[in-house]
Nucleic acid binder design. Sequence first.
DNA 1: TATGAATGAGTCTTCATTCAT
DNA 2: GATGAATGAAGACTCATTCAT
Lengths: 192, 192, 192, 192
Amino acid sequence: MPTRHETTEGPRPKRDPQARRRAIVRAAADLLVEDGELTHRRAAERAQVPLGATTYYFSSLEDLREAALELLAQEINDDLAEIGREAVRAGGRPEVLAALLHDYLADTAQIRADAALYTAAVHRPALRPLATRWFEGFVEMLSAWTDPGSARAIAMFVDGASLHALLQGEPLDLETLTRTLTVLMHPASEEA
Amino acid sequence: MPTRHETTEGPRPKRDPQARRRAIVRAAADLLVEDGELTHRRAAERAQVPLGATTYYFSSLEDLREAALELLAQEINDDLAEIGREAVRAGGRPEVLAALLHDYLADTAQIRADAALYTAAVHRPALRPLATRWFEGFVEMLSAWTDPGSARAIAMFVDGASLHALLQGEPLDLETLTRTLTVLMHPASEEA
Amino acid sequence: MPTRHETTEGPRPKRDPQARRRAIVRAAADLLVEDGELTHRRAAERAQVPLGATTYYFSSLEDLREAALELLAQEINDDLAEIGREAVRAGGRPEVLAALLHDYLADTAQIRADAALYTAAVHRPALRPLATRWFEGFVEMLSAWTDPGSARAIAMFVDGASLHALLQGEPLDLETLTRTLTVLMHPASEEA
Amino acid sequence: MPTRHETTEGPRPKRDPQARRRAIVRAAADLLVEDGELTHRRAAERAQVPLGATTYYFSSLEDLREAALELLAQEINDDLAEIGREAVRAGGRPEVLAALLHDYLADTAQIRADAALYTAAVHRPALRPLATRWFEGFVEMLSAWTDPGSARAIAMFVDGASLHALLQGEPLDLETLTRTLTVLMHPASEEA
DNA sequence: TATGAATGAGTCTTCATTCAT
DNA sequence: GATGAATGAAGACTCATTCAT
């Protein structure tokens, strides 16, 4: 007589709606990063959940997309915030920031995530705040070391650099990156 | 009794395959710029041609997409080359380039075209050369006034600025743009 | 005022995926037998199911085709196995087998099913085992009464006879059929 | 001043409607043999003629198909007639016929042509005479050496053997083939 | 005479979404 | 609460056929 605790298949996955939902979001995010095609079916398959689960937890595909992009935005934000903290710990020296950013730009997964976010936001105005979230944080962080205008200019430059690292297959070389960040952080030297 | 020459619909457009093809490409490009969704049906409707025409002239939708993006790339390239020529005529002064670029970034159609090109290229490696075509030309143009590294840095900055002008709804202010281009074009002053 | 129980369309068929799938396969098989043209639309119409059902249950049209041919192959196999059993019960006398086969060849539905299977297999190597399934069973059955080579020869002869019954509109006459099976089953008499 | 005889492209292909028509028919026949798919486009491409030529010379695709099958039927007929003549020259000995047929069955192109003809005829009653043309000729030829019933039986056997050579990838072995033809040609020995 | 242009019907297929269970 | 079944809309694409040139 079988008990309710089936033991043949290892630890029975506990019923955990939150975890399931997260798994679907994660899968959707990965799909967006990897090839930009998001469908219920693909998300379900990737997350190893039934098709119905993707519509049960999200009222529409756009809903799921937004949750996935929110996740990506958060991760990007966290990563860049960490870079910012490290740069601050190093006294805000441009060469340190450059080194950190160079690593970031060399990480394909990172720059593809950036691109996924932008791509989605271009034709979806509602998502634009999501796509520029890291921007605001980054600018704020930089503001400790330079004026707001320069901070914005630097952030834009980083954005362009991310896009080009993806399109050209490799990041801007460290030397140029360092030199560029240096002049952008100290524009006042111009006026001397 | 109607004559054989129907005049209600204007002069019957003569058969002109080239023009028809161009019209389809134009329509496809516009769709990509406007909302990124390209289908045979939408292209046909917009170009005012029968559905079959879109498959007759292009062996696949990707083919059509490529032709449309090629058109956009060419237009962007032409516009930026013109900006370059004007900047050169003005002696390469950063403030002139900044003013021209500011106008460019304020033109929604332009920056949406940029974005359309990038968006398409992100998940289509084959299109990447198309998306970076203007970049090469722009760098070359700038090289008359600054070193290659700075030229590339400037181009990347412009790219980021274009993306942000779209995502934030307005271009970087002229003053910051001018200051940024100025320092990027004369990085040597740093070392003084 | 209509009640909620509509009776004009009979008892609402309960959801029964298995039966539905079978109905689609049956419809597809019939279409292949009747005119060889199999499309999702025709199968759906014939099975009285929505178009979407045909793609829901079969991942591709080839998948559906294969299922339909599998059904035909099974039916042919069953019918010929029954003929074999009856022949065995009659002591393996050729005239009994001939009579049974004559009936088989006179049944248009049967020989069209044979032909459908062959037709599909000619340009689809993957289906060839299906088309020759009955052959193997038939040969094995005959092997109880004659040598393997003769058994194969008989089966091939039956195959040609089936094809010709269809193309010529009538089966080989019983007398010739009997005589032919007789000599094919006792080739040893030749060597006496 | 250019003359009307252009010499730059080598011997100018003479205008030869008959040859062009033949080329299209040949191409269509080859397509039917190779994969059974016949379209105007494929025939035109294979025959190296403009698409329009295929509709210019044939009032419909069915027309072209029929012409192509007529060609195949004729070739099969010719080949089997030649086999018949050789068998006759050899005194009608079954082993000679068997050897010739074994070669025929081992020739993939031949048996695929047979199959193409049958496949087309199964669902096109109008083509059935075409598909059985060789049969009549073959029977007549054999009638010089055996009775009509046996001749028909042999022809049917050959038909089944052709189909199976295709479906099973190899012809019936020569020994069995020889033995089978032998008994089929001399059924009277049974009655001794 | 010949042919590229043209097009609408119809093909397979994918999929968001709804719903019965 | 969950989920497989269900389906119609829409997508890309093919193609026989017609026709202007």
